[in-house]
Amino acid sequence: MLKIDNLHATAGDKEILKGISLTVNAGEVHAIMGPNGSGKSTLAQIIAGHPGYVVTAGSVTYEGKDLLAMPAEERAQAGVFLAFQYPVEIPGVTNAYFFRSAYNEVRKANGKEELDPIEFLDLMEKKLKLVEMDEAMLHRSVNAGFSGGEKKRNEILQMAVLEPKLAILDETDSGLDIDALRVVAGGVNALRRPDNATIVVTHYQRLLNYIVPDFVHVLAHGRIVKSGGKELALELEARGYDWVMEAA
């Protein structure tokens, strides 16, 4: 589904990614772990199409297409989804309007019929239950004045609505208490299917108790320094990151 080959990227003068290679197949869950500043979030944002980075070498192929040549909205329409570490507040646009616009643009791009507001509300009722959110949330402005936990739930709600093929969760666990973490992880697990894939970017192992990965990769100084199975996450939790970085 996703093939990253020798990806190098810079922000300003600084090289942040220094040759990342990673293959993600349908049905898999990959965890990308690593200390702060290792380039985890940069990788997630480059896959989603953030304009603030320059790819200097390497390639990213998604379903056989050159992902880096596609603008962010085309990536989303093709099924790529990024749950933001810091979801953006958009005062003046209601969740309901924003979600429906996004949903319908994605539908339209895929040659499917758009839903009217009533049909969309029916769909939303089911999705809201998944993340244990109240319908009142739909009538509030996107993320405006939301608590940290509400923002993260709102990200998963969008994911539930858009049903992406490739979902990237960027530090979705940061700032969540244990109950919110359970709800968010429950939502992600409910959305897992054999034909979609998930990349979980996280600093801590905690989230991986709930979203169990098939593969764990350690990112340090812009490179993947170690890959393994889910047991690698536990080892990192017990021993910290220093030993992997030294071994590399």
Binding site: H50, A72, F81, I90, G92, V93, L162
Partner: peptide, 26 residues
């Protein structure tokens, strides 16, 4: 905010329009 909206599938023009409108709507 523009990137956020585009990352949800909204086209660049629609994202700009919606964000401009939102500025007024407040």
């Amino acid at each position: 905010a523009l990137f956020y909206m585009k990352s949800r599938g909204l086209g660049a023009e629609n994202a700009r329009a919606l964000l401009t409108y939102a500025f007024a709507a407040e």
